[in-house]
Amino acid sequence: MKAKTTPYLLVLPAWIWLAIFFVVPICGMLSVSLMTGNVLDGFTQTFHVANYAEAIDRYWRQILRSLAYGACATALCVAIGYPVAAWIAFRGGRHKTTYLLLLLLPFFVSQVLRTISWRFLLADDGVLLGPLKSIGLLPEDAHVLSTPLAVVTGLAYSHLPFMVLPIYAVLERVDHRVVEAARDLYATRAQAFLRVVLPMSLPGVFAGVLMVFVPTSADYVNASLLGGTGTTMIGNVIQSQYLVNNDYPMAAAITFVLMALLLAGIFGYARALGTERVMEVRA
């Protein structure tokens, strides 16, 4: 009897933690999202489902934009992160850990500071655009700051390690002899990569995409520091509904809409990729 209950007792702290810091707030938020009222007169629970309709109706543009920015940033992270991970895994030699540390080093600095640094880098006459303009490669009125490009770049930069690390973890475990076997079986270098290394590393890409897409879609720091009026993301809307307009039910309703969309997206993605099949590779 004792042996049977021990495992449950051991996970109990974790369950309590989840209950207090996840389940209770989520339920609270769900309840708030169905309230009506205002901050002066107070909010009352009226099960006002129309909050959701209003949230979608008023902010669908920002929601779509957030998902689009998230997708672009994720794609950028894959494009930059995969080669970096592959290089460290296959060519890193005994300095692998050093390279990984270098990759993470900027993240010991606060995200706000790092994002503000990007404002200097991307400023109209900053270190990047200034020289390009003075040699005539860019027109004088060219700007990056306040554009979607700036926001997506910032998002990709701040989430790159979350892409590199899972891909690296998988690539690092790819047996080099499997690549040799492919080469031995008449595959060129490119074919060996496309047919063997890439499919074997998909679980890492899968994990990386989730770890980048979800937080970038819900991000608000990059859009508020690097973006302008035309690049407002849903995270910024939620923030202002909460802290500026104090319209808690609306903020909560938007949050749930975003969460529902992301969850649906994740499940669709997992199904399309065939998680089970992909996960088998690791066994």
Partner: peptide, 10 residues
């Protein structure tokens, strides 16, 4: 034929 077989696991 490799010592560790080096089969393609996927």
């Amino acid at each position: 034929v490799f010592q560790s077989y080096a089969l393609f696991p996927h």
